[in-house]
């Protein structure tokens, strides 16, 4: 194993982690402010990817697609918030689980009706195509750009929450809902806005990742479950926790897939080692989650709420 290969795998882990962060940030924000568990978050990710692919194909421009995908996911988010989810804030989590589970069925089927049953094509923009020489390794430029995107969005989100008036309201909403309503903030509009923001982040992640993955119905749910693991590790409602959790999951998952089969390769025949290593690697992040639960039941960065 060379240093170059190791470095490349670390970058891969970071990139996976930052994309998971985009997913988790929206989920954790929505929970922190509204106390809502949204299983349909993965569907918004899928909507982002489908609209991006369709718009990029129609216009021939990836960036227009990216905007369209993010906007479509945000709009879809706002729509389901206003029509369905708004009625569920005061209900128990059980009703929220069932309603958002139903939304997965509806949104998946509508996507299939709208875009057809076959996966869509979405290519990396020409300017981000190819590889760059990092001195000791060649690395795909687009993946490097994804790392940059992820960091930029994280910074933007932090600025939004720490420095803007909207951010103050969001933080206030996390602490005391009655209070900010009493202060004259339009709480309904705030909730719709926060939900659309979370949905837009998921859509952005779907659109960005869609260029290097298969844009197909059902693409969101595996990512959703990873995002849950991230949030459990990081602490619900904490953006910082989502960042740390996402990077941990991304790096540990990538390194596990890379190193475990090699480790077993020292003790047994190659194809057997590959099988056992892959099986254990797929469980590694859940073991991590269990370990965090034993040490810090509320996650690494528990939100105050």
């Amino acid at each position: 194993m060379t240093a170059a290969l190791f470095l490349e795998q670390v970058l891969n882990g970071l990139q996976l982690g930052l994309m998971l962060f985009l997913m988790s940030a929206g989920l954790t924000l929505v929970f922190g402010v509204m106390g809502l568990i949204n299983l349909a978050h993965g569907s918004l990710y899928m909507i982002g990817a489908f609209f991006c692919a369709a718009a990029a194909a129609a216009s021939g421009n990836f960036w227009l697609g990216l905007i369209a995908g993010t906007a479509a996911a945000a709009a879809a988010g706002a729509l389901i918030e206003v029509t369905v989810l708004r009625r569920l804030y005061d209900r128990d989590h059980l009703d929220q689980v069932l309603a958002t589970f139903a939304l997965i069925l509806v949104l998946s089927e509508l996507t299939k009706i709208g875009f057809g049953p076959f996966p869509l094509f979405l290519d990396v923009p020409p300017i981000l195509s190819g590889t760059v020489n990092l001195g000791i390794a060649h690395y795909p430029l687009y993946r490097l750009a994804l790392i940059g995107f992820g960091l930029a969005v994280a910074l933007g989100l932090w600025l939004l929450i720490a420095r803007t008036r909207l951010g103050i309201r969001i933080r206030a909403g996390e602490n005391d809902r009655e209070m900010i309503a009493a202060l004259g903030v339009n709480i309904r509009a705030l909730y719709t806005l926060v939900f659309a923001l979370g949905a837009g982040l998921a859509g952005l992640a779907g659109a960005l990742v869609g260029a290097v993955q298969s844009v197909q119905v059902g693409m969101g749910e595996p990512v959703l479950i990873l995002a849950f693991v991230v949030i459990v590790i990081g602490g619900i409602g904490s953006i910082k926790g989502a960042m740390v959790g996402a990077l941990m999951v991304g790096v540990i998952d990538t390194m596990g897939r890379f190193l475990l089969p090699r480790l077993f390769g020292h003790f047994m025949e190659q194809s057997q080692a590959a099988g056992i290593g892959a099986a254990l690697a797929s469980m590694l992040i859940y073991v991590l989650m269990a370990a965090v639960l034993v040490i810090r039941p509320k996650g690494l960065f528990p939100a105050h709420a």
Binding site: Q213, A274, G275
Partner: peptide, 12 residues
């Protein structure tokens, strides 16, 4: 190599 069923990221 064996990958995970349903895997979407093949960077590693």
């Amino acid at each position: 190599l064996f990958t995970q069923l349903g895997q979407t990221d093949f960077a590693a």
